[in-house]
Design a protein around this nucleic acid. Structure first.
Lengths: 199, 199
DNA sequence: CCATTTCTGTATCGATCGACACATAACCAT
DNA sequence: ATGGTTATGTGTCGATCGATACAGAAATGG
């Protein structure tokens, strides 16, 4: 863009990250413009000039979340020699990522936007797409496993991927509820015993 | 109470049920007093006279939910000869109860109040207690199973009950997301393969 | 009948919501 | 310097939020 006119007095990404953390913790409706302005350190007109609206800001915050928070965790799925190892690594990564930490709120932002209060339709649609991508990532890994012979061809791939998505979502809810990493690890361990062929 | 004064022009329980269904579907913040008055068929002052406040009405709605919606499903846990059968019946009951039906919204009201937007502290505390009761019901059934020798004494009861709670919560999220009963049944089937000793 | 009590509808309260008008300040090109 | 362009802060907009004041209506007890 043109470097013309008065330059912006704040860093856009820094402000966006502050908005993401606030939205993540409090949700959409419960986060007011006033809250956002305080957290981002800017005034209302600056926010509107830079992001358009509260709703547009939320959508950008989700995008930022998917871009920065998701990959370090979901990359685990591709690691490990087998799909089983990948899923296990992913589960462990969740137990570390989902509880509230010094830097981030508890739970999964893309999940929290699905449940609870009714949200603007545009947001619901976008976060739903994100959740479908999670399901797709799981299914894709399982399909590869079947193709490689790690799992029998009769495996219910859709059901199994949906099952692990369920476990993830349940863990996210419990994390939001204050569950400790140790408690989540017990859930992950139980979930791994559902791997086909184990006993 | 005294039968003195002008009698109430509406049935309290009927109005409460209407409020519950609306809160269940839309959440707390997204449900306005105006919405409630429309759904309950009464005016704002009547609502305040009968229920006190929006927050008090929500608390009564949760109580009503726990009293009327919960038991038909959770009673399944006690049915069946073994804990395994009880859990399986419970999972199946969820797959039928969680999706949106003609009469009820999707998901679990007590769960939805945990996630998403920030809710009033009193409500958070009450619904958290409800979720702890769910966990307690599962754990209690598993303890009985260990006592009866259905499960080895080394069973991680806390982890296993938390695991099945996770599955339930994940199923509730996916139900809210529009998952079909068939898709939820696949999740339930996968979850049952995690039963200790199966394989 | 009247007095008392309780419920109901209209109309509205102050607070807060998201969003913006406006004037001013800070930068670039010329 | 000067005009063009964009960002900033103050102040405020209409709408909506949850919650009531008030007066009239409907019941009971005398």
């Amino acid at each position: 863009m043109a470097a013309i006119g008065r330059p912006r007095g704040f860093d856009r990404d820094t402000a966006l990250e502050a908005a993401m953390l606030l939205f993540w913790r409090k949700g959409f409706a419960a986060t007011s413009m006033s809250d956002l302005c305080d957290a981002m350190g800017i005034s209302s007109p600056s926010l509107y000039a830079a992001f358009g609206s509260k709703e547009a800001l939320y959508l950008e915050a989700v995008e930022y979340y998917v871009r920065t928070i998701g990959p370090p965790v979901w990359d685990k799925l591709a690691e490990g020699a087998t799909a089983r190892a990948g899923i296990e690594k992913l589960l462990i990564a969740w137990t570390e990522s989902l509880p509230k930490s010094r830097a981030t709120p508890a739970g999964c932002m893309a999940l929290l936007a699905a449940v609870g209060d009714e949200w603007p339709a545009t947001i619901v649609r976008v976060v739903k797409k994100v959740r479908l991508e999670m399901l797709g990532a799981l299914r894709s890994r399982l399909e590869t496993a079947v193709a490689k012979g790690e799992l029998p061809a009769s495996t219910d791939i859709d059901g199994l991927s949906r099952f692990y998505l369920s476990v993830f979502q349940g863990m996210a809810v419990q994390a939001k509820d204050g569950a400790t990493p140790a408690e989540l690890r017990a859930v992950a361990a139980a979930a791994m015993t559902a791997w086909p062929g184990d006993g």
